[in-house]
Design a protein around this nucleic acid. Structure first.
Length: 277
DNA sequence: ACACGTGTTATGCG
DNA sequence: TCGCATAACACGTG
């Protein structure tokens, strides 16, 4: 579920409610979520430190950490990736969770029991005042790691300049949608956001990316920024206009043409075959 | 019961 | 080595 907008709200929760307090316990026993670290490795690296800042590029979050005790030497960065189903929850002593409840699964929302089921807590930091920061992740494709390689990612999709966008996205023979999904090209676009933006920009997801002209690339970037802002404001990529029409029997809400479904760039893709060229 | 999947990454091929 | 396609990963959901 999480794409750039949802990840930004998770980052914001950490910044607002998890910085500055001493870490007194770390549960890093989920070896899959914490790959490639051995159990206890992250724990040993973080005990006694504090989170001092929360950053994001695309779908990746990383937190700076303080020195231990009075040491000025900062600790390793704590990288958090939500994968397909991860949520960051900061639980206060009064048991209320902050974060993780972004609107926009659009469907059922989460039940009270799934919200508190510890089975899906894959990583937990406990602070000196008793609060906890947890990575709650049913599908277990999220990831926590020390010093993640952020430079392997392209520029953030919400901040990329027009020139960078033209040079990085508008090249190659891969389908346009595959280019948008490539996190090394541009960080933060997932499957749903890609379909939304391509529909808004009237572009065929199968077009070789290098064939787009300057106007088309400028329009695509404009729609991308618009869609990201809209999703952050309204609670996630599920609030996009075309998302509900990514289903069998649906018709384009602008022109009424039956929506087409195919695999493009390795992912299920829906588009309007009449308007998207 | 079974196919599907909103993310990343390893592998293989030309 | 590069660009691209595909499979694999884990496991809940419809």
């Amino acid at each position: 579920m999480p794409e750039l907008p949802e990840v930004e709200s998770a980052r914001s929760v950490i910044e607002r409610s998890a910085l500055g307090r001493r870490i007194v316990d770390v549960d890093d026993s989920d070896t899959y979520e914490c790959r490639p670290h051995a159990p206890g490795e992250i724990r040993a690296a973080l005990l006694g430190r504090r989170l001092t800042a929360a950053h994001r590029r695309g779908k990746s979050i990383w937190c700076e950490t303080s020195g231990v005790g009075r040491s000025r030497t900062p600790g390793p960065a704590l990288g958090v990736h939500l994968g397909m189903s991860g949520r960051v929850l900061v639980t206060q002593r009064d048991q209320t969770d902050e974060g993780g409840d972004y609107v926009g699964t659009g469907r059922s929302g989460q039940s009270a029991q799934s919200r508190h089921n510890p089975t899906w807590d894959r990583f937990t930091l406990t602070f000196a005042d008793g609060d906890t920061l947890r990575l709650f992740d049913k599908r277990r494709l999220g990831r926590v790691r020390l010093d993640p390689d952020i430079d392997a990612l392209g520029p953030d999709a919400g901040e990329i300049t027009p020139a960078e966008f033209r040079d990085r996205v508008g090249r190659g023979t891969a389908p346009l949608k595959a280019r948008l999904l490539d996190q090394a090209t541009l960080a933060g676009v997932g499957n749903l956001l890609a379909d939304e933006v391509l529909w808004q920009a009237h572009l065929d997801p199968r077009r070789p990316a290098g064939e787009l002209d300057a106007d088309e690339l400028a329009g695509l970037r404009r729609e991308l920024r618009k869609a990201i802002r809209h999703a952050i404001r309204h609670g996630g990529v599920h609030t996009g206009e075309i998302i509900d029409y990514r289903t069998r029997g649906a018709h384009c809400p602008r022109c009424g043409t039956a929506m087409t479904r195919a695999t493009v760039g390795g992912r299920t893709t829906w588009w309007c075959p009449k308007e998207q060229r």
